[in-house]
Design a protein around this nucleic acid. Structure first.
Length: 270
DNA sequence: CGAGGGACCTGGTTGC
DNA sequence: TGCAACCAGGTCCCTC
Protein backbone atom coordinates (compact mmCIF):
# COMPACT_ATOMS: atom_id res chain seq x y z
CA UNK A 1 0.00 0.00 0.00
CA UNK A 2 0.27 3.17 -0.03
CA UNK A 3 1.74 4.41 3.14
CA UNK A 4 0.69 7.79 4.50
CA UNK A 5 2.54 9.84 1.86
CA UNK A 6 0.91 7.87 -0.94
CA UNK A 7 -2.51 8.39 0.63
CA UNK A 8 -1.87 12.11 1.00
CA UNK A 9 -0.59 12.35 -2.58
CA UNK A 10 -3.76 10.57 -3.69
CA UNK A 11 -5.90 12.95 -1.64
CA UNK A 12 -4.25 15.99 -3.16
CA UNK A 13 -4.56 14.46 -6.61
CA UNK A 14 -8.26 13.69 -6.47
CA UNK A 15 -9.49 16.65 -4.43
CA UNK A 16 -9.62 19.24 -7.23
CA UNK A 17 -11.58 16.81 -9.42
CA UNK A 18 -14.19 15.74 -6.88
CA UNK A 19 -14.59 18.48 -4.30
CA UNK A 20 -17.87 20.39 -4.50
CA UNK A 21 -19.06 17.97 -7.21
CA UNK A 22 -22.34 16.12 -7.05
CA UNK A 23 -22.41 12.34 -6.93
CA UNK A 24 -24.77 10.88 -9.52
CA UNK A 25 -24.17 7.17 -9.02
CA UNK A 26 -22.18 4.73 -6.91
CA UNK A 27 -21.34 1.47 -8.66
CA UNK A 28 -20.06 -1.36 -6.51
CA UNK A 29 -18.87 -4.15 -8.81
CA UNK A 30 -17.20 -6.17 -6.09
CA UNK A 31 -18.07 -5.21 -2.54
CA UNK A 32 -16.01 -7.96 -0.97
CA UNK A 33 -13.23 -5.81 0.37
CA UNK A 34 -11.76 -6.02 3.84
CA UNK A 35 -15.28 -5.55 5.10
CA UNK A 36 -18.35 -5.80 2.87
CA UNK A 37 -19.09 -2.41 1.32
CA UNK A 38 -22.33 -1.35 3.06
CA UNK A 39 -25.46 -0.43 1.10
CA UNK A 40 -25.41 2.92 2.90
CA UNK A 41 -22.74 4.16 0.46
CA UNK A 42 -25.69 4.77 -1.88
CA UNK A 43 -26.63 7.64 0.42
CA UNK A 44 -23.89 9.59 -1.39
CA UNK A 45 -26.02 9.75 -4.50
CA UNK A 46 -27.35 13.26 -5.04
CA UNK A 47 -25.02 14.68 -2.43
CA UNK A 48 -22.18 17.11 -2.95
CA UNK A 49 -18.71 16.12 -1.81
CA UNK A 50 -18.02 18.92 0.62
CA UNK A 51 -14.52 17.93 1.67
CA UNK A 52 -11.79 15.42 0.86
CA UNK A 53 -9.79 14.78 3.98
CA UNK A 54 -7.30 12.28 5.30
CA UNK A 55 -7.01 10.75 8.77
CA UNK A 56 -4.17 8.27 9.19
CA UNK A 57 -4.30 6.23 5.97
CA UNK A 58 -8.04 6.69 5.57
CA UNK A 59 -9.51 9.04 3.00
CA UNK A 60 -12.72 10.76 4.01
CA UNK A 61 -15.24 11.99 1.46
CA UNK A 62 -17.61 14.20 3.39
CA UNK A 63 -21.18 14.94 2.43
CA UNK A 64 -24.08 16.51 4.29
CA UNK A 65 -25.56 13.05 4.84
CA UNK A 66 -22.46 11.25 6.01
CA UNK A 67 -18.89 10.38 5.22
CA UNK A 68 -17.42 7.73 2.96
CA UNK A 69 -14.36 6.26 4.66
CA UNK A 70 -11.93 4.71 2.20
CA UNK A 71 -8.73 2.76 2.78
CA UNK A 72 -6.36 1.58 0.08
CA UNK A 73 -5.10 -1.47 1.95
CA UNK A 74 -1.89 -2.84 0.43
CA UNK A 75 -2.65 -2.49 -3.25
CA UNK A 76 -5.50 -0.02 -3.64
CA UNK A 77 -5.53 2.95 -5.99
CA UNK A 78 -7.94 5.77 -6.64
CA UNK A 79 -7.97 7.53 -9.99
CA UNK A 80 -10.17 10.12 -11.62
CA UNK A 81 -11.29 8.92 -15.05
CA UNK A 82 -14.01 9.67 -17.58
CA UNK A 83 -17.24 7.90 -16.79
CA UNK A 84 -17.02 5.78 -19.95
CA UNK A 85 -13.41 4.74 -19.36
CA UNK A 86 -12.99 1.01 -19.93
CA UNK A 87 -13.40 -1.00 -16.74
CA UNK A 88 -10.35 -3.08 -15.92
CA UNK A 89 -9.82 -6.08 -13.71
CA UNK A 90 -10.04 -5.16 -10.02
CA UNK A 91 -11.90 -1.90 -10.68
CA UNK A 92 -14.26 -2.56 -7.78
CA UNK A 93 -16.01 0.76 -7.16
CA UNK A 94 -16.95 3.85 -9.17
CA UNK A 95 -18.17 7.05 -7.61
CA UNK A 96 -19.69 8.70 -10.67
CA UNK A 97 -19.99 12.47 -10.65
CA UNK A 98 -22.59 14.64 -12.31
CA UNK A 99 -19.91 16.28 -14.50
CA UNK A 100 -19.06 12.99 -16.23
CA UNK A 101 -15.94 12.22 -14.24
CA UNK A 102 -15.62 9.16 -12.04
CA UNK A 103 -13.54 8.39 -8.97
CA UNK A 104 -12.51 4.79 -9.60
CA UNK A 105 -11.20 2.42 -6.96
CA UNK A 106 -8.96 -0.45 -8.06
CA UNK A 107 -7.51 -2.96 -5.60
CA UNK A 108 -6.12 -6.36 -6.66
CA UNK A 109 -5.69 -7.72 -3.14
CA UNK A 110 -8.91 -6.26 -1.75
CA UNK A 111 -7.36 -5.43 1.62
CA UNK A 112 -8.82 -1.97 1.31
CA UNK A 113 -12.20 -0.73 2.45
CA UNK A 114 -15.10 1.57 1.77
CA UNK A 115 -17.32 2.29 4.74
CA UNK A 116 -19.99 4.82 5.57
CA UNK A 117 -20.52 6.82 8.72
CA UNK A 118 -23.16 9.31 9.70
CA UNK A 119 -22.17 11.89 12.26
CA UNK A 120 -18.73 12.41 13.74
CA UNK A 121 -16.33 10.15 11.83
CA UNK A 122 -13.81 10.17 14.64
CA UNK A 123 -16.26 7.96 16.51
CA UNK A 124 -16.27 5.27 13.86
CA UNK A 125 -14.74 2.01 15.03
CA UNK A 126 -11.79 2.24 12.61
CA UNK A 127 -11.01 5.80 13.69
CA UNK A 128 -11.64 5.98 17.40
CA UNK A 129 -8.48 4.23 18.60
CA UNK A 130 -6.05 6.05 16.35
CA UNK A 131 -3.13 7.95 17.81
CA UNK A 132 -2.10 11.44 16.70
CA UNK A 133 -1.09 12.39 13.18
CA UNK A 134 2.68 12.65 12.83
CA UNK A 135 2.20 16.25 11.67
CA UNK A 136 0.21 17.16 14.79
CA UNK A 137 1.71 19.40 17.46
CA UNK A 138 1.54 16.71 20.13
CA UNK A 139 3.77 14.33 18.20
CA UNK A 140 7.32 14.88 19.35
CA UNK A 141 10.19 13.15 21.13
CA UNK A 142 8.74 13.78 24.55
CA UNK A 143 5.48 12.16 23.49
CA UNK A 144 7.22 9.06 22.11
CA UNK A 145 9.34 8.78 25.22
CA UNK A 146 6.34 8.97 27.53
CA UNK A 147 4.39 6.40 25.53
CA UNK A 148 7.35 4.02 25.32
CA UNK A 149 7.88 3.68 29.05
CA UNK A 150 7.91 0.04 30.12
CA UNK A 151 7.36 -1.26 26.59
CA UNK A 152 9.44 -4.22 25.51
CA UNK A 153 8.20 -4.26 21.95
CA UNK A 154 10.92 -3.47 19.38
CA UNK A 155 11.03 0.25 18.63
CA UNK A 156 10.19 -0.39 14.99
CA UNK A 157 6.90 -2.03 15.90
CA UNK A 158 6.32 0.70 18.46
CA UNK A 159 6.48 3.52 15.89
CA UNK A 160 4.34 1.48 13.48
CA UNK A 161 1.61 1.07 16.11
CA UNK A 162 -1.38 3.19 15.06
CA UNK A 163 -2.35 3.74 18.68
CA UNK A 164 0.99 5.50 19.21
CA UNK A 165 1.18 7.49 15.98
CA UNK A 166 -0.61 6.90 12.69
CA UNK A 167 0.80 6.64 9.23
CA UNK A 168 4.24 5.16 9.82
CA UNK A 169 4.32 2.07 7.64
CA UNK A 170 7.06 -0.42 6.98
CA UNK A 171 9.07 1.62 4.50
CA UNK A 172 9.17 4.81 6.53
CA UNK A 173 9.77 2.99 9.81
CA UNK A 174 12.85 1.37 8.31
CA UNK A 175 14.06 4.62 6.79
CA UNK A 176 13.44 6.77 9.85
CA UNK A 177 15.26 4.40 12.21
CA UNK A 178 18.22 4.32 9.86
CA UNK A 179 18.41 8.09 9.73
CA UNK A 180 18.14 8.27 13.50
CA UNK A 181 20.84 5.62 13.96
CA UNK A 182 18.59 3.45 16.10
CA UNK A 183 18.64 -0.35 15.95
CA UNK A 184 15.07 -1.35 15.05
CA UNK A 185 15.23 -4.36 17.37
CA UNK A 186 15.75 -2.35 20.53
CA UNK A 187 13.03 -2.39 23.14
CA UNK A 188 11.00 0.82 22.82
CA UNK A 189 11.20 1.40 26.56
CA UNK A 190 14.99 1.25 26.57
CA UNK A 191 15.48 4.27 24.32
CA UNK A 192 16.41 7.62 25.82
CA UNK A 193 14.45 10.85 25.60
CA UNK A 194 17.38 12.33 23.73
CA UNK A 195 17.15 9.70 21.00
CA UNK A 196 13.37 10.01 20.72
CA UNK A 197 13.86 13.77 20.31
CA UNK A 198 16.07 12.93 17.36
CA UNK A 199 13.70 10.32 15.94
CA UNK A 200 10.38 12.19 16.03
CA UNK A 201 11.37 15.03 13.68
CA UNK A 202 13.08 12.53 11.39
CA UNK A 203 9.80 10.60 11.06
CA UNK A 204 7.97 13.84 10.26
CA UNK A 205 10.60 15.00 7.76
CA UNK A 206 10.77 11.61 6.04
CA UNK A 207 7.01 11.54 5.54
CA UNK A 208 6.89 15.18 4.48
CA UNK A 209 9.70 14.77 1.99
CA UNK A 210 8.02 11.74 0.47
CA UNK A 211 4.75 13.66 0.08
CA UNK A 212 6.63 16.44 -1.70
CA UNK A 213 8.14 13.93 -4.09
CA UNK A 214 4.86 12.24 -4.89
CA UNK A 215 5.27 9.18 -2.73
CA UNK A 216 7.38 6.10 -3.13
CA UNK A 217 6.96 4.13 -6.30
CA UNK A 218 6.91 0.45 -5.59
CA UNK A 219 5.16 -2.32 -7.40
CA UNK A 220 1.80 -0.77 -7.94
CA UNK A 221 1.57 2.77 -6.68
CA UNK A 222 0.85 5.72 -8.86
CA UNK A 223 -0.74 8.99 -7.85
CA UNK A 224 -4.26 9.85 -8.87
CA UNK A 225 -2.91 11.42 -12.04
CA UNK A 226 -1.09 8.19 -12.87
CA UNK A 227 2.35 9.71 -12.34
CA UNK A 228 4.81 7.70 -10.30
CA UNK A 229 6.40 9.01 -7.12
CA UNK A 230 10.06 9.74 -6.85
CA UNK A 231 10.79 8.96 -3.23
CA UNK A 232 12.02 5.45 -4.07
CA UNK A 233 15.30 7.02 -5.16
CA UNK A 234 15.76 8.27 -1.61
CA UNK A 235 15.48 4.94 0.15
CA UNK A 236 18.55 4.13 2.21
CA UNK A 237 17.67 0.73 3.64
CA UNK A 238 14.22 -0.45 2.59
CA UNK A 239 14.55 -3.11 -0.10
CA UNK A 240 18.37 -2.95 0.07
CA UNK A 241 19.17 -6.06 2.11
CA UNK A 242 22.65 -7.35 1.25
CA UNK A 243 23.66 -4.06 -0.34
CA UNK A 244 26.10 -1.59 1.17
CA UNK A 245 25.11 1.00 3.73
CA UNK A 246 25.00 4.41 2.03
CA UNK A 247 26.94 5.83 4.94
CA UNK A 248 29.56 3.26 6.00
CA UNK A 249 29.49 0.56 3.31
CA UNK A 250 28.66 -2.20 5.79
CA UNK A 251 26.39 -4.91 4.32
CA UNK A 252 22.79 -4.17 5.30
CA UNK A 253 21.09 -6.91 7.29
CA UNK A 254 17.50 -8.07 7.32
CA UNK A 255 15.49 -9.40 10.22
CA UNK A 256 11.76 -9.92 10.65
CA UNK A 257 9.95 -7.92 13.26
CA UNK A 258 6.24 -8.47 13.59
CA UNK A 259 6.39 -10.50 10.36
CA UNK A 260 7.59 -7.45 8.48
CA UNK A 261 10.89 -7.23 6.73
CA UNK A 262 13.27 -4.95 8.57
CA UNK A 263 16.50 -3.80 6.97
CA UNK A 264 19.16 -1.97 8.92
CA UNK A 265 22.85 -1.20 9.13
CA UNK A 266 24.40 -3.08 12.05
CA UNK A 267 27.21 -0.53 12.13
CA UNK A 268 25.25 2.74 12.02
CA UNK A 269 22.20 1.64 13.98
CA UNK A 270 22.71 0.91 17.63
C1' DC B 1 -2.76 -5.83 29.65
C1' DG B 2 1.24 -7.35 26.09
C1' DA B 3 3.30 -10.44 22.76
C1' DG B 4 2.78 -13.30 18.92
C1' DG B 5 0.72 -15.10 15.21
C1' DG B 6 -2.97 -16.00 11.67
C1' DA B 7 -6.19 -14.03 8.78
C1' DC B 8 -7.79 -11.53 4.66
C1' DC B 9 -6.39 -11.54 -1.14
C1' DT B 10 -3.92 -11.38 -5.81
C1' DG B 11 0.06 -11.25 -8.43
C1' DG B 12 4.96 -10.84 -9.23
C1' DT B 13 9.36 -13.01 -8.48
C1' DT B 14 12.38 -16.80 -7.31
C1' DG B 15 14.06 -21.33 -7.32
C1' DC B 16 13.89 -26.13 -8.55
C1' DT C 1 8.61 -23.86 -19.75
C1' DG C 2 6.02 -25.36 -15.51
C1' DC C 3 4.87 -25.12 -11.04
C1' DA C 4 5.28 -24.46 -6.15
C1' DA C 5 6.90 -21.51 -2.65
C1' DC C 6 7.49 -17.18 -1.01
C1' DC C 7 7.07 -12.32 -0.79
C1' DA C 8 4.60 -7.60 -0.88
C1' DG C 9 3.04 -0.88 1.02
C1' DG C 10 -1.92 -2.84 6.27
C1' DT C 11 -4.37 -3.82 10.20
C1' DC C 12 -7.79 -6.51 12.60
C1' DC C 13 -8.57 -10.15 15.68
C1' DC C 14 -7.64 -14.29 18.07
C1' DT C 15 -4.99 -16.95 21.59
C1' DC C 16 -1.75 -17.42 25.27
Amino acid sequence: MPELPEVEVTRMGIEPHIKAKQVSKVIVRNGKLRWPVPDEVQLMVGQNIDAVERRAKYLLLKTARGTAIMHLGMSGKLCVVDEDEQVLKHDHIDIVLADGKTLRYNDPRRFGAMLWHQGDVSEHKVMKNLGPEPFAQVFDGQYLYERSKGKKVPVKQFIMDNKIVVGVGNIYANESLFKAGIDPRRAAGSISLKRYKLLAPIVVDTLAKSIEQGGTTLKDFAGADGKPGYFAQELSVYGRKGENCVSCETILQEVRLGQRSTVFCPQCQR
